[in-house]
Each structure stands twice: as structure tokens, then as C-alpha cells.
Nucleic acid binder design. Structure first.
Lengths: 319, 319
DNA sequence: TTGTATGCGTTATCAT
DNA sequence: ATGATAACGCATACAA
């Protein structure tokens, strides 16, 4: 493959001049410029990216950490990130973690050793202190409320959203409200739990820990939820379900068990995915693709910024 | 950051020797080896990957071309690929194409210019001739039956599988059978259509082109399918649905419209995803993760190989 | 077994 | 405006 040395020879100029036209630098005469351009044309020349990377100390690679690639929430986030990456001429390196910490550390490790320029963590398992340690090595962008923490973030105020949703259900006459969550340990989950507790405190409602159902991620987990509901002496009359997929699964399963929605059970899903529209599920719209877009933009920006994304309740037939 | 030169100085050896122990080459005395190892330890040294890449002309990067990241089929494939990549110390570069050819060409372009070592195309839009042109630049691995074509492939014999499924439905008394597909133009789709035609020929059945429904990818597309069914004078009595997601959508929608399954409409889904099990949908199991795994292994292997993946009919309640 | 010297293809510095 | 040359960090052919 031809390199800039070849081009220089062909065009009768120095490698520096070639490099200048290659990178649109000023101070090069029109005459030499066309000569170089012609050489490029003739030789079908293309830069050796690896050499550029070595020379610049940058890779144009951005790591994306997420637990599952086959989950719609992360799929949509990734979609938004990927689109921007394309536009900005970055490539994405995927770290599918299954929430195994070592895999997340691997990503951090790569950031540390300049194998990626920046890291987007869509959902993390490692402690904040570990993230913090790696901040000096490059930009890390998070998808959770970490305000005051010197990391860029794009997040939803899950506390407020959850609280509002609970209030909404309360206004509809519900006082026994449960919710399902992907995993309990994330920051977002903890904020929601806090909202849940505060809500119960505010209205002096009894707090039942078994109204909180863990590890609900996919459509098929709806079955599990309904089963748990059936096993309760006094099941909740309303459910906040933090994924439309799961909500759809619950709705489907309820039909099988002749549980009438919303009469016996009200449901609010999250994300307002197409499936929610199709099944007429009331849902809280979260613009995931837009969040992904913003995450990427923050990832390639040196300044720390925090963006709160606003959401919208879409009222349909399950409440 | 410290480099091998530093290490060499610290350990009192040459850079070559350092490089040797770094890469586990023979011919280095135990004594010098430990000295180098100690230096590595002390300095918290790590290779500069970019330099390695430039020097070797390899990137340890494998491109993955797929149309959608938020689709379960590709999500599962990607999961299998990602797991192997992790084990083999490769990183994945994602090309989300939305079936826009230029994005696929971008991936081919990167292969051509050594920015990635190998390319896995999960689903393509570009012509075979274009793929073929790029074969000389690196390994390309396909997810379709391209036997005799000098590319590595991991595929399902969709012709046979489809034919068998049709025969199965026929044996259950169905003669008006339709099917849904993601897009019509792929190789896999064409093989299925061929099977569909041949089946009708074999049993001298009338071929209705409107029994074939296009662009069915997601759960919510089930609605579209049922609507089309309702608009037909003589709708099919059975449907092959090339995605359990869509099948689940159809089943859900049928309940809404009081279409009894399997009495009025029989359904066979594909992939045997968890959602199929939950909703008791008869499905053809395709081990997507395993396919992903195999795709990756082929991608890092210089020899061309073709692997046919066998599938299994899982009988449940929709036929 | 070990080391010297050179190549990999760019970008950046500095002098002119 | 232009060019020589160093630097990026590693691998390796070749010499010893």
C-alpha cells in the first residue's frame, strides 16, 4: 500500500506538505496542493489509521459498557450512540458485561491504557470510587444522576419521575402499589426505591417490601410477576413496571389468568416503546435514542456536563 | 507512560530482550527474564496497543455489520459474538447499518484499509460481487448459505427448514398457509420463498403472493399482520412467522380480535425465544448465540469453512 | 542467548 | 510557504 512517502515522491514535494494537504492545514500553495491531490487520486491512497493513532496517541475508539445487547432498553441507547458515532467518525468498542464487574474493569483498563479515547457506561456494577480513579485517564460518561461528581452524565430524575407516577396512581385511588425493577443495586433503582419509601411516608401507607419485584427485564419475566402477585394475600392494585417489555408480559399473562386490567390491576410501563402503544399500555416515555445521542456527544467533549432528560406520561388504557 | 525503552534501561537489557519476554519468545535467560518482569511490575507498564498494531499491521479489531441493535435476533447473535471476542482478546467494532448500503460499504472500506482485521456480516444489503472484491483484504464471515463461494459462513438451511415446517402444517390439515418475513431481499428470505413456491407446486396448491407479509420485525408488527389477515377474503389458516417476537405480537393481537389460536389460525414462530415459551408458541429453535460464537471463530480463522446449524421444532400450543 | 538497527506510517517541531 | 527530521512504541531481521 502506498504511503505518504510515496505520495511525496510522486508529487515532488516533502512528506510534510503531503501531510498538510491530507489534514487541510494552511500554508500550502494551490499548485503543490493539486499535485498532491493528483497523486492521491492516482495511487488510490488511504491513510494508515494505526499510524495516525500511534502518532496522535488517540484511537477514535469509544468504549460502550452495557450489561445486555439483547435488551431493548440498551438496544435503543446503543442505537442513539451508534448513530452519532457514525456521524462523528468514531468507532464503538462494545463491552457486554452481563453485570460481571471484571468485564467493566476491562473497559476501564483499556481507557487507562489509551486503547480507547473515551468510555460510555450505560449501566455499571463497579463502585464509584473505581470510576473516579479512572477519570484522569480519559472522559467517562455515565447514564445516571451523578451531579456534583465531575463526570459527564445524561440521566433521568428517576426519583421525581417515580414519585410523580406514584402520586398519579394514588390520585386514581390506589394505595397498594408495587413495582418491578431490573436489578436493585443500581443508582437509578436506589433513587426509585427512595421515592417509593418517601411516597409511603408522605401518605402514611404501609410499606411492603414484597411489593418490590426484582430482576424483571424481559417480556417473559411478566409471568414471574403475575405468579408472585397470585401468591400474595393482599396483592397490589397497581404496578409500576420499569420496562414496557415486562409490562407487556404482565398484561399478556393477566389475560391468561383472567385478571382484568385496569379494574383489578393498573399498570404503568416505562420507555414508551412501540409495544406499549400496540398493547395500549400507559407508559412513561423516555427518549432513549436521544439519551444515547447525548451520551456520545458528551463522550467526545472534554468539558464535564450533566443533562437531565425530561420524560412524559403517556396515558392509555392500563390505568 | 513507560515504554519498552524504559524497561530495557531499568532491567539493564536491550529492548529486544524486553520484547521477547513481553511476547513469550524463547531464548532469554531466566535471570534477565526476572529482571524484566520486575521492571514491568515496578513501573506498572502496559503495552501501547497502537504501536503494536502499527508494527504488526493488525488491529485485534473485528467489525460486526448488522442492521439493528435493538432487534432480538441480532441482539442474540451479537451476544454470542461478543462473548467469544472477550475470550479471544478481540474488540468488536459495530456497524449498525439500518440496511443502508453505504454503511456496509464503510465496514468493507475499513477492512480494505486494515482498520479492522476481519469482518462479520450478520445481514447484508450489498451485492455478492462487492463482498467478493473485498475478500482479498481480509476474512469476511457471512450468516447465510454461500457454499461454494470461498467465504466462511455459519447458516441455517432455511429452504429445508421452511419446507419442513410447511409440510408439518400441511400434515395438520392446512393448505392455506402464509408467512411473514423481515425483508424480502435477503438470501435467507429468498431461500424461504423458494421453499414456499416449491411446496405449493408439490401439492398443487394455489400460490397467493399476498399471503407473504413483508417487514415484520418487532412485536408490534403483529398488529399489522392481523390487520392484513382481516382484510383478506380467504385468509390463511396457518402462518409461519420468522420471528417469535412478531409471533407473540400476532398471538396477542388475535386475542384482542377474538381470533382463536390454533382453531382459526395456527402459528409457528422462529428462534424459540423465551417469549415463545412463555406464550406457548410453537417455534423453530435456532441457536443464535451458538451461531454468533461460530461466526466469531471463523472470523479469526484463515481457513474458509462453512457450518450448517441444525434447528429443532418445539411443539407447543399454537398449531 | 543477546543486542543493534531498522521499519511501520503518521504527525509535530523547528529551522529556513 | 516548505522541508528535514524527530518522535510515537513496538517488532524483528540480522549480526554477534
Amino acid at each position: 500500500m502506498t504511503n505518504i512517502k510515496d505520495l511525496a515522491r510522486m508529487a515532488g514535494v516533502s512528506v510534510t506538505t503531503v501531510s498538510r494537504v491530507l489534514n487541510n492545514h494552511p500554508y500550502v500553495s494551490e499548485q503543490k496542493k493539486v499535485a498532491v491531490l493528483r497523486a492521491i487520486e492516482e495511487s488510490n491512497y488511504h491513510k494508515n489509521i494505526n499510524a495516525v493513532h500511534l502518532s496522535k496517541g488517540k484511537t477514535q475508539l469509544i468504549g460502550v459498557v452495557l450489561p445486555y445487547t439483547d435488551h431493548s432498553y440498551f438496544g435503543q441507547l446503543l442505537k442513539g450512540i451508534a448513530k452519532q458515532a457514525l456521524e462523528h467518525n468514531y468507532k464503538l468498542v462494545l463491552f457486554q458485561t452481563d453485570y460481571i464487574e471484571s468485564r467493566e474493569l476491562e473497559a476501564l483498563y483499556m481507557l487507562k491504557h489509551k486503547q480507547i479515547d473515551s468510555l460510555i457506561i450505560c449501566s455499571r456494577t463497579s463502585n464509584w470510587s473505581i470510576i473516579e480513579e479512572h477519570l484522569v485517564y480519559g472522559t467517562i460518561t455515565l447514564c445516571e444522576n451523578m451531579i456534583n461528581k465531575k463526570v459527564s452524565t445524561t440521566f433521568v430524575n428517576h426519583y421525581e419521575v417515580f414519585f410523580d407516577a406514584l402520586e398519579y396512581l394514588y390520585s386514581k385511588g390506589h394505595s397498594k402499589i408495587g413495582y418491578t425493577i431490573g436489578r436493585k443495586s443500581g443508582t437509578n433503582s436506589q433513587n426509585r426505591e427512595r421515592a417509593y419509601r418517601d411516597f409511603h411516608k408522605k401518605y402514611n401507607l404501609p410499606y411492603n417490601s414484597y411489593y418490590i419485584m426484582d430482576e424483571c427485564l424481559y417480556f417473559e419475566d411478566g409471568e414471574k410477576v403475575v405468579k408472585q402477585l397470585n401468591d400474595m394475600d393482599t396483592p397490589p392494585t397497581a404496578l409500576l413496571i420499569t420496562s414496557d417489555q415486562v409490562a407487556a408480559g404482565v398484561v399478556t399473562c393477566c389475560q391468561k389468568h383472567n385478571i382484568s386490567i385496569p379494574d383489578q390491576l393498573s399498570i404503568i410501563g416505562f420507555d414508551n416503546e412501540p409495544i406499549a402503544k400496540m398493547m395500549n399500555i400507559t407508559s412513561i416515555e423516555i427518549p432513549l435514542e436521544e439519551m444515547g445521542k447525548n451520551l456520545f456527544l458528551q463522550a467526545i467533549n472534554d468539558q464535564v456536563s450533566n443533562k437531565e432528560i425530561s420524560v412524559k406520561l403517556i396515558q392509555r388504557k392500563t390505568v
